[in-house]
Design a protein around this nucleic acid. Structure first.
Length: 311
DNA sequence: ATAGCGCCCTGGTGGC
DNA sequence: TGCCACCAGGGCGCTA
């Protein structure tokens, strides 16, 4: 499940190779990922444009496409509907991509074989293709104007970027104070902090010595401080490692991540700190793994019963 | 306003 | 061996 570190790794991989390239063709094999957008509208909005930037917001990947000057002044074929006319006249179109659970973005040569999970390809002017794959068909890829992008529900109310140097406990603490639900699902709420999903919520809570079922508002000042630090630490380490090692995630070159989780997906295995078998429960409908010894159900002054280090 | 749940979708797995 | 029920899960939208 691509979360912030995985999407950031994809962003860096794309940025290295596709900046200033022109999109010469867009092939859609599974229009479902375009959501409400038609295949034709999608193609008309992106073909002929150049890739200006590759950005990330939370788990969203945003690729800015800029029109050639001539394209802005006079679209070759006058579009029938007003929305389309406005879009073609836009200097900038944002390719808004969310990979959800199983989506993948790959940068491959145009002559490489197509996967059965292929949904969309963007052929670039250097014969490389940006390919969107999704086994579960949950992912989304849309070509939007700036105005439309601002209305995307998930993006509109999204919380702060945890790797932004300005993000600190003063951003997190007020969010937690007004929540009575368990801390784990609260951390995964994209309005509280952007980009944290199941993997890194489990990891950050383990490193902070906080039980995942603790009511968010019950965290002490010290615990919230620790959690702020461990969220940033675990995300940074995972970005450095090119994402989490898992069966479903690879970067744009098809390379697996190298970050190895301490608790995520390790239910029943020994805790890396105290060797207690890790506990697996369901929280907010999600699989959750924690150490019953290191992560006490009550507030703790230090890092739980175990000594731990974080940067 | 917020918490909880069903839904979307498909491959893999365990039970019979 | 074959079939099927069931599970995994991010985020949206509905309900209470």
């Amino acid at each position: 499940m691509p979360e912030l570190p995985e999407v950031e790794t994809l962003r860096r991989g794309l940025e290295k190779d596709i900046l200033n390239r022109q999109v010469v063709r867009a092939v859609v094999t599974k229009a479902k990922v375009l959501k409400e957008q038609t295949e034709t509208a999608f193609q008309e909005r992106i073909v002929g444009r150049r890739i200006e930037r590759v950005d990330r917001r939370g788990k969203y990947l945003l690729i800015a496409l800029i029109a050639e000057r001539a394209d802005v002044r006079s679209p070759s074929t006058p579009p029938s509907d007003i929305g389309q006319r406005v879009a073609l006249g836009e200097p900038r179109i944002l390719l808004c991509i969310h990979l959800k659970m199983r989506g993948q973005l790959l940068l491959q040569k145009a002559d490489q074989p197509i996967s059965p999970y292929h949904c969309v390809s963007l052929l670039l002017d250097d014969s490389m293709e940006v390919r969107f794959h999704d086994m579960w068909m949950w992912g989304e890829m849309r070509a939007l104007t700036n105005e439309e992008l601002a209305k995307v529900p998930g993006l509109a109310g999204m919380g702060a970027e945890p790797l932004d140097p300005a993000w600190d406990v003063r951003s997190l603490a007020p969010q937690l104070a007004k929540r009575s639900g368990p801390i784990k699902p609260t951390l995964m709420d994209q309005r509280v902090v952007a980009g944290v999903g199941n993997i890194y919520a489990d990891e950050a809570l383990f490193r902070a010595g906080i039980h995942p079922a603790r009511p968010a508002a019950s965290l002490t000042e010290g615990e919230t401080n620790r959690l702020t630090q461990t969220i940033r630490a675990v995300l940074s380490e995972a970005v450095e490692g090119g994402g989490t090692a898992s069966e479903e995630y690879v970067d744009v070159k098809g390379v697996a991540g190298r970050y190895t989780p301490w608790v995520y997906n390790r239910g029943g295995q020994p805790c890396v700190i105290c060797a207690t078998p890790l506990t697996r429960i369901r929280l907010g409908g999600r699989g959750t793994v924690f150490c019953s010894h290191c992560q006490a159900p009550e507030p703790t002054v230090h890092g739980g019963s175990c000594e731990r280090r974080y940067r």
